[in-house]
Amino acid sequence: MKKLLSLKNIIVSFAIFILIWQVLYMTSDFGDALFPSPLKAWQALVEMVENGYIFINIGTSMYRFAAGYISSVITAVLLGLVLGWFKGIFKYINPVVQLLRPISPMAWMPFIVLWFGIGDVPAIVIIFIAAFFPVLLSTVSAVGNIDPIYLKVAKNFGIKKPEIFWKIVFPAAFPQIANSIHLALGTAWVFLVAGEMVGSQSGLGYLIIDARNNLRADTLLAAIIVIGLIGLILDSLLKLIEGYVMRLWGGADK
């Protein structure tokens, strides 16, 4: 993966992207108010950086994201380990999970706003829901896919009930769980913006709404790009952490 993201590739890729943007800007007749040029968007970004507005909103969003994502992942993994182990119980829970899973977290928004009001909580709850089901189901299946030989070995060496969870079950299921945690990061980030667009008066999502309300298409585009950049950075960070942990784990499957 490192090769895919070499500096040269990044620069060329972005250069082409900006070029196409510029060409579209020059050939379209929307005008600056509807479709700003790269330069305009850049200037809007510089403006937000200079008055610090963007950093306040990034901070707010990151706090909500961390709270929602981390609490969701921890809950989903713990619950997934238990349900994956006690398959009998999961059989009775799975139908409801399958019913809830395809519902977009945004569908819960009216209730969430009614119950928790406007502010940090709606975005946190939306992110929690967005990350929860994929990680839960993946953890359950990871526990189910554990090579039976590990459990045989554990039994043979007299490793008993509570210990078997952190000595065998969790580490054996870990690679698949880590993969789902990684995938859920992207989903959760997507829904952070959606959640903030509806349920908040601050954050990156709100920045979008605010820009629209003020008819500032340049700020809008700048905010969109910032959201993309942060998503990219978060993904790369997690990839680094994942790689490091997998090395401690003993290397990935060949």
Binding site: K152, V153, K155, N156, I168, W249
Partner: peptide, 20 residues
């Protein structure tokens, strides 16, 4: 049931890859 006094060695080793 399996006993710690009688250990089995398997064809595919049964080592835990996450442990040294």
């Amino acid at each position: 049931e399996p006993s710690v006094k009688n250990v089995t060695i398997f064809q595919n080793y049964g080592l835990l890859p996450w442990r040294t």
